[in-house]
Write a protein that binds this DNA or RNA. Structure first.
Lengths: 210, 210
DNA sequence: AGGCTAATGACAGTCACTGACAATTGACAA
DNA sequence: TTGTCAATTGTCAGTGACTGTCATTAGCCT
């Protein structure tokens, strides 16, 4: 990797870190692209040559995490039931995700940015749209595992929708609480996934929830 | 209602219709606020006095539909199981929604705009964010029905997430297909909701889906 | 060293949106 | 009916995200 490439990577990383730092401290809406560019001492135009938009910087790290999850699902043994495969895939990949993140930015910074995403309307919207795309991808994977046609059989999409819904609920609860650790999120997710069975079966009024 | 009020309503309706017509024919991104204002012959500033933003016009009608659904859920007899109550509420309220829409714009126009929403990234994102808010509201209603505390018991949110997920899947399938009627959407939703049970129980590989 | 190409900066323009102020217009009492 | 008051609107100027263009700079390769 020659000087040119190294310089490019450095500028991109610097822009990314500057952006995330600003988002986490000052807030997303309160940070202008000019602020980010100025912090790295490049022109605004250069920022837009590295990132398609302000949003892209906020979602750079989350994208890495997504990739891990999708791959983890692909790697699950075909014998597992769909919901079980999804469950194990997320929990397992979250165990490994710390290192992936730390290569780019401090995990603690990422966690603060994650909260900003959940609490900034524009970012939350973008996040949910991306989640929908991911669900489509996962539905295809699940359908393939089970030897079904996604477009003919609704079941893969339904299970994935349930799963995605639970994940999103835990994300929101986590970001609203005060335990910002990755471990806290993992824990919350596991608890909620455990509740899927009880939530769908039996009579709620006669059965307590743990 | 005096002249002043009548005039206001007329301008607002005209702006709304002009916007939706433009979105449906030319596309959302291809329509500028200036275009909409010009079509009604008012200043751009006036547009922003009636609508908080361009998006708001696109979501005006959907908001009415949401309200109907939420009220329909509230009106369900307490004896019904949560998922059953939600199911009946949507299907039933969609039967009545035609008239509500027609008071504002032709239903056919609304259907075309709905497709634009599903196919325009920025609008889809906003739509999904709103859907998340709605789910939160529904979760609270369900929890109340069952005499539970939403913040302590995960089950209401899980059921609502499942339900919302199924609705969103059908919305996307519907908007990708070529039956743009409300009836077609109702039908698709009913079919998918019927599949929730089969999707979550049993072994897919040994059971065909209708 | 010098020519080639990629990266950058500077500049101008578009579009969504906002604040401020002046002009207009309906409402309502005298 | 008229005059006053308040609401509605238009105009203008400005911000912030983004894009296209073109000249300049800087690494690369012979």
């Amino acid at each position: 990797m020659n000087l040119r490439e190294r310089k490019k990577r450095r500028t991109r990383d610097a822009l990314l870190r500057a952006a995330l730092e600003l988002f986490a401290t000052r807030g997303y809406e309160e940070t202008t692209v000019d602020d980010i560019a100025a912090a790295v001492d490049v022109s605004q135009r250069t920022f837009f040559r590295y990132f398609a938009g302000k949003e892209e910087t906020a979602f750079y790290v989350p994208r890495l995490a997504e990739t891990q999850v999708v791959e983890a699902v692909r790697a699950r043994p075909p014998g597992e039931a769909p919901l079980e495969a999804l469950r194990r895939a997320v929990l397992e990949s979250w165990d490994r995700i710390n290192e992936t993140i730390e290569e780019i930015v401090p995990v603690e910074l990422h966690m603060r940015v994650y909260r900003v995403i959940e609490s900034t309307p524009a970012l939350l919207a973008a996040h949910l749209r991306r989640a929908a795309e991911l669900e489509e991808e996962l539905a295809r994977i699940i359908a393939e595992r089970e030897g079904l046609d996604v477009d003919a059989d609704p079941r893969p999409r339904i299970v994935v929708a349930l799963f995605g819904g639970v994940i999103r609920v835990t994300e929101r609860l986590w970001s609203a609480g005060d335990d910002l650790t990755l471990e806290g999120m993992r824990q919350l997710t596991a608890t909620y996934l455990d509740q899927v069975g009880p939530a769908l079966a039996g009579n709620w009024r006669t059965e307590q929830s743990p």
